[in-house]
């Protein structure tokens, strides 16, 4: 099969200097002062697929995208885009790709939205008439038409990101990389962006999108397949439904208790509890525990432990497994915990 993207035993190590300083807090670092950003990554993305890379900050998602977009060389292993080796023939790869990043501030404040899209399209040799047609259509879909002649410096974050999205799509790349494209956007704009991305893939079955995100719901709702990546390694790769089926535990409970102020959580020494996420709501005087148990029988031990500690269980409810549960099970910690460790 001709893969849109294929990586084999891909590895990227950063050595010393500034790069090390930037990375050492977030990724695995060995004793030699080297940081392994990617390790033995094997992935295949089919043409027409919307493929998600899900992982916490510092997991290696952006490093992988940089290698695939020819901005970074792998330390070892191979990566091909549309069958072309990114290290050996980057010029041919560039004719097939484009990229949009979240929180991007590219462009020039003095140009209008339409001019910015046109300018970047020139770097791909897209004729002006074609740019105009495509841009008009995309601006219409994303509700950007009224801002077409507005200077970029006057745009809000959401509007600017919509422009960036169009900038990436307007060259009609065979493979598009979206690096956390909804980062910092409000719910409504993020939803518009997601539906635009999904519709584009559905309309162009021969083109692929690689999307990195640390939003579980985004990966779940948008992607055909998802690779869960953590500390440079791919932990699992499948459709969201299969990941939930295979990796999400069935015994997930939400337990509401009065505000817990003693640090950790009241179940931290209980064997039947595989992991627990804690959310404090000081304003309501409540703490919510999201608890994954080894088996369904464990809930009895949980309520008993709570009553032993004099903690009233205000409500107990069983939850449907989510992608986050699968992630938690695979990686051993949630996204928030992972980022906390990173700090």
């Amino acid at each position: 099969m001709n893969w849109a993207i294929e990586t084999q035993n891909l590895r990227r190590v950063f050595r010393g200097g500034t790069v090390r300083r930037l990375w050492r807090r977030k990724s695995a670092q060995n004793g030699n002062g080297e940081t392994v950003a990617l390790d033995a990554v094997d992935l295949q993305v089919k043409p027409g697929e919307l493929f998600g890379l899900l992982g916490p900050n510092g997991a290696g998602k952006t490093t992988l995208l940089k290698i695939l977009s020819t901005l970074l060389l792998p330390t070892s292993g191979t990566a091909t885009v549309d069958g072309i080796d990114v290290a050996k023939d980057p010029e041919r790869v560039r004719k097939r790709i484009n990229m949009v990043s979240g929180g991007e501030h590219s462009g020039f404040g003095i140009l209008t939205v339409r001019e910015t899209i046109w300018m970047f399209a020139q770097f791909y040799g897209v004729p002006g008439r074609v740019v105009r047609e495509r841009a008009d259509r995309m601006m219409d879909i994303l509700g950007l038409t009224e801002f077409a002649e507005t200077k970029v410096s006057k745009l809000s974050t959401g509007t600017r990101q919509k422009m960036n999205i169009i900038r990436g799509f307007v060259s009609a790349p065979r493979i598009l990389y979206l690096d956390e494209p909804t980062l910092g956007l409000d719910v409504a704009v993020a939803r518009e962006v997601r539906s635009f991305v999904r519709a584009w893939v559905d309309e162009h079955p021969e083109r692929s999108i690689i999307l990195t995100t640390h939003y579980m719901a985004e990966a779940d709702s948008l992607c055909d397949r998802v690779a869960i990546i953590d500390r440079g390694r791919v932990r699992a790769c499948d459709t969201p439904a299969n990941l939930k089926r295979d990796w999400a535990p069935e015994c997930v409970y939400r337990i509401e208790i009065p505000l817990w102020t003693q640090g950790g959580h009241p179940l931290d020494d209980l064997d039947v509890v595989r992991s627990a996420d804690v959310e404090h709501h000081g304003d309501r005087g409540r703490t919510n525990l999201r608890v994954i148990l080894e088996n369904g029988d464990g809930i009895g031990a949980v309520t008993e432990r709570l009553s032993q500690r004099g903690v009233a269980a205000l409500s107990v409810s069983r939850l449907e497994p989510t992608l986050e549960d699968a992630f938690l099970n695979l990686v051993g910690h949630g996204l928030a915990a992972s980022e906390e460790k990173g700090r």
């Binding site: 901005l71 560039r94 790709i97 484009n98 990229m99 590219s106 970047f120 770097f123």
Partner: peptide, 18 residues
């Protein structure tokens, strides 16, 4: 610093053209 350089570098054009 602005973030434009990486967009130039992934584009299929010569750096000298930019």
């Amino acid at each position: 610093e602005m973030g434009n350089l990486e967009l130039y570098l992934i584009a299929p054009v010569s750096r000298m053209a930019i």
